[in-house]
Design a protein around this nucleic acid. Structure first.
Lengths: 350, 350
DNA sequence: ATGAAAGCGCTAACAT
DNA sequence: ATGTTAGCGCTTTCAT
């Protein structure tokens, strides 16, 4: 029933500064180190003093300033996570896994979206390092200068790279088996009779997009299907960017009977482009997404495992933070083909 | 071409501790404060010394320890964000908006998902406060004890609550107009001829679920439709939880011809439950979601504006951090009804 | 068992 | 213009 009124004269918030250990020590009439001992659960302190300290702590609403503590002990118990964008479900799942893993280790997460902006990425990484995070998990922007990453690693901040490798840097990575996964997806279409297969991916500079395109070609090669550049289109995924090129492809004399999309953003965009079409090409998308199974037909995908990737990255990072100085470790996570209908549509014979 | 080998003896990472200003001062043969001045862009320092310091900084790979700085200046330039779960698109959009807003203010984001666990929520809030975040944006777990929140606010950490108000605490809130929004959605169904309308929501303890259920009743009342508890079901949204109750409802003698769902998780679950059904009731969902427009029929929703909520919460928090001690401010964001087909299905007349 | 004192890396008077 | 010093809040020897 201690309903303090938070907006009366002087206001409870913005009140006097928070109590410090010194204040507690003074009130409890003990030495500073005794307070520290009590706060840290050091048992060699008399019951009487312990009680006095506890009482003072309660009275003053004391809560230890962990920033100060961390300055002294030299570890911030926090790690930084720089992803492309939280609103992309791939990254939000990855983030959640990292969150859970680090929380178990009493480590907090500084997280941020780079939004594919190399300047923003750089700024974030550098600010995290300035805050002396214990380590960093980074999805590098594909177009960026990576010199500063090497510098910060050399300076002592462990980093593991996730989803994409950093340019020209030897470091721990956690990636999806992009190339083989894409090949599997395309082979699935081929197995269902397709020989004219379009490939729609994210911008070619994107490492994952390039890898998946390579996988697409691998599958074609394996089936002795000629690679036709007219069936390939790469751009930042959006309905606007994809509408015309895709329509053009399908208006070719010898149009594709199936399409393979290189990531969930692309798949979703393509689905929108094709919304309302009477006949649709078969479709296999790379990366799963919510409601893929609720569409008609369900969307066949090559599923990635973002949560596992986040967890693997966190594991490796904590290994480094723990002092592991072994050689860079490269983890590749496999993919799972999930047939749901769209990938099993036979080629329309005309 | 300075490819340092990161895994040779001694290893570049985990090397000697990072250089400090003292080290820089020593190497540049200047005083500590001169280094500080240079680092902070204080211009009243000679060109010669400036150059010497800059040189030393480069040589040592010095980067200011912001934690130490912050301890001294008394502000961490970071805020905490406790949401329910990043993997919920509602919250990831909210998060992204907060991210952007605080980045503009040179403030970093400590973020975490409470996963509806009151203990985890409490732990996160307290740890954030111990780190002395400049402020906190919190989606309170609905079942939780809120005493500690009041205590931390009183101790000087400003907080704004988003999506749900904290129990028994007067503080800044940013909420959706849940009740009126739900009423609008249900009225839309009524306008399309429905009089038997089911309501499927999240657990009743959830503030938003309760409000939206109230809005549902408001709409029925306004249309003089009797409230039938048989048409209402509340539980943590999942296909398993919803399948049987919903099937039972639709098997009633006088079954519902439409259903209103209380949040995006519920809508998605219901869509899965109904997947493959030949005839489907009309559907209006609260909160928009990706691909709502790509389904057949498109799903009519009462859209919330999570990004705007995040931004509004961040704005208010920074106002408080800036020293605003005015009375608690309650912001309600309106909703947008988006007809896409599912909500315009007429009642099946039999 | 307890306290005094040094110091983590920085900033901000205060001298000069 | 530059250096010296105190101190942010804590932990951690080191005495006692």
């Amino acid at each position: 029933m201690t309903r303090t009124s938070p907006h009366t004269a002087g206001s409870a918030s913005r009140g006097q500064p928070r109590a410090t250990m010194k204040d507690v020590a003074a009130l409890a009439k003990v030495g500073l180190s005794t307070v520290s001992r009590v706060v840290n659960g050091d048992n060699r302190v008399s019951d009487a003093k312990t009680a006095a300290v506890l009482q003072a702590i309660r009275e003053l609403g004391f809560r230890r300033n962990d920033s100060a503590r961390q300055l002294r002990v030299g570890a911030t118990q926090s790690i930084g996570l720089v992803i492309e964008n939280v609103i992309d479900p791939f990254f939000s799942h990855l983030t959640h896994a990292v969150e859970n893993y680090s929380l178990e280790r009493n480590t907090l997460l500084l997280s941020a979206s780079s939004t594919r902006d190399p300047e923003r990425t750089r700024r974030l990484v550098l600010e995290f390092c300035a805050r002396r995070v214990d380590g960093l998990i980074v999805t590098p922007a594909d177009t960026e200068e990576t010199g500063y990453l090497q510098a910060e690693m050399d300076a002592g901040t462990p980093m593991v790279f996730v989803d994409r490798p950093p340019r020209g840097i030897e470091a721990d990575t956690v990636l999806t088996g992009d190339r083989s996964g894409a090949a599997r997806g395309v082979a699935h279409l081929i197995r269902h009779g397709h020989r004219r297969i379009a490939c729609v991916t994210d911008r070619g500079q994107l490492h994952t997009a390039a890898q998946r395109l390579a996988g697409y070609r691998d599958a074609l090669d394996a089936a002795a299907i000629r690679y036709d550049p007219e069936l390939v289109y790469s751009a930042t995924p959006s309905v606007e960017n994809f509408r015309t090129p895709v329509a053009r492809m399908l208006a070719l004399d010898n149009p594709p009977t199936a399409v393979f999309t290189g990531n969930n953003r692309s798949t979703v965009a393509i689905l929108r482009v094709m919304a309302g079409w009477d006949t649709r090409p078969a479709l296999v998308g790379f990366d799963d997404f919510e409601l893929a199974d609720a569409l008609h037909p369900g969307v066949t995908v090559v599923a990635q495992h973002p949560a596992e990737m986040g967890r693997a990255a966190a594991e490796q990072l904590f290994r480094r933070i723990g002092g592991d100085t072994g050689p860079p470790r490269h983890t590749i996570l496999g993919t799972t083909l999930i047939p749901r209908g769209s990938g099993e549509i036979p080629p329309s014979r005309k």
